[in-house]
Design a protein around this nucleic acid. Structure first.
Lengths: 108, 108
DNA sequence: CGTGTAAGGAATTCTGACACG
DNA sequence: CGTGTAAGGAATTCTGACACG
């Protein structure tokens, strides 16, 4: 209903110093995770990084995994795997709908 | 359920340049509305203003009213009036509950 | 009253690099 | 590999003031 509430979470408006305060991470860490393709802030015309609340949550998640000894490229691979699973799930849904469709047309 | 979605809207994390882009207002206007007690950004330790998405919405509302010729102090008065109405409504609710309460105890 | 602007200073952010391990 | 830090520069933000009307 209030779809704006969702965009608040994804709107990239927070600069790195505020992200530092929100997450407790150092700016060095935040920029490094970007270098390792784990986070993708927007950039202003002059090059200043802007993050969303969703990015902030993701950063905390990343930091926790690294604390647990997971390497950055492993985190990236894990996310790719999850993306693939999501794709597969969508295909299954579509397949199910198609089958239901043909059943109606063939069985009668 | 996801009560964080609400706090996103009220968390003061946006600096004035981004607010300018979000609202289309000038920084001068944004600071002036604060001077007139219509908006209340947070401040970092070093004095940088930080706004929430709710503040951004309020700023757009303020700007629209000013465009319509409403003066800043009138906007402030109008809000005070609405605050009062809200208070009165709460009292009414409370009164209603009290009456229902006594009815149960007295009528039986 | 509401807004623009130039002024000078302080705080923020950026990149590339060296360091440690 | 992940993070700290000093370095120099560029972009941002702040306040108080003058201007117009």
């Amino acid at each position: 209903m209030n779809f704006d509430d969702k965009s608040y979470k994804e709107k990239k408006v927070i600069s790195i110093g505020t992200v530092r305060e929100l997450t407790g991470l150092s700016e060095r860490q935040i920029r490094y995770y970007e270098e390792r393709k784990l986070i993708f802030p927007a950039r202003t015309a002059s090059g200043i990084r802007k993050y969303s609340f969703l990015d902030v949550e993701r950063l905390v998640d990343i930091a926790n995994q690294i604390e647990d000894g997971v390497q950055t490229y492993e985190i990236r691979q894990q996310w790719k795997k999850k993306e693939k699973q999501k794709e597969d799930w969508k295909k299954q849904m579509l397949k199910g709908q198609l089958q239901a469709h043909f059943k109606n047309y063939d069985g009668k």
